[in-house]
Amino acid sequence: MTAPTPGAAKAAPGPLIAGVVLLGAGVYLLVHALSAGDLTLGGPGLAPVIVTGLWVAVAACYVVTAFLERIAEAEDKPRWLTPFLLLGGLIAYSLILKFTVVGYVLATVVFFVGSARLLSVRPWREVIVRDVSVAIGLSLAIYFVFTRLLGIALPAGVLPL
């Protein structure tokens, strides 16, 4: 583990921001729940109000504690770029699966190599052969097990499978 930045625990704005976001979301959902009407006992509108009301109350407590006690933020320094790049990759991957003719195997190989690269700290020359071969093997195995043995359709796409 890396050493914590001096003073990080005290001044950490993270929890406070998270608390405010939570509180905002809770208020929005509570208003949404209240506008649905029919808050009778046994009706469908009551539980949403109770749950979102609880949400607002708990989120408010969290904001207060975050403000007063300055909940110590995690000591390690996360890098948010990598997970969001990965997320972008995932979304692109699933959209390609659903809406294009690229096909399961090809899309999976490309995604696999890209994602493994993002998650790797070693230079790509050392791992590219491993990544590509695992990607091809895994995607072909999944494709055939699902389409041939289980009868679940996966897009064949441009490859002559």
């Binding site: 995604f111 493994a116 993002l118 791992v127 990544d131 695992v134 995607s139």
Partner: peptide, 12 residues
Amino acid sequence: VPRPVLYTGILV
């Protein structure tokens, strides 16, 4: 299993 391969596998 090397982490990049393992976690990419989980995502797939």
